[in-house]
Amino acid sequence: MEQQNEMKLSFPSRSANEGFARVAVAAFLAQLDPTVEELADIKTAVSEAVTNCIVHGYRDSVGTIWVEAKIFEERRVTVKIRDRGIGIPDIRQAMEPMFTTCESGERAGLGFAVMQSFMDKVRVTSRVGRGTAVTLEKRLSERSGKGA
């Protein structure tokens, strides 16, 4: 896949930045003129991944979150969301719908389920004590009459 454009962001893991991150990614991808639905899907997936860094990766501390978005040929986009937090000991278990380590009862445990259902591909790499990286991938639909 030949890369055509990219952007990088980093910000502290404060919950006020959840909105900033997804809107920044959406603004970057606007050059591809995605559909409203595609944009909503990507924003939602990014929001889940960033929230995971804040709620789980850095839990009670504040650390840096990195977001990297890339545009490839054939309208393929990837968004990588990375932290240097606590890491995930069992990725398979973490990705199970309704699995959550949060005890408040206010987190549905559906973050990965949303990412997987709204994106074409979700890749997770993690090392305990070192951090987690989630790469989201989606191919946008062809839009006739409007070139990228």
């Binding site: 997804r22 909503a40 929001s47 973050g111």
Partner: peptide, 13 residues
């Protein structure tokens, strides 16, 4: 105008 899975938690709670 936007909702992620936090909205599900909000309704479930």
């Amino acid at each position: 105008t936007f909702m992620d899975s936090s909205g599900i938690g909000l309704v479930m709670g």
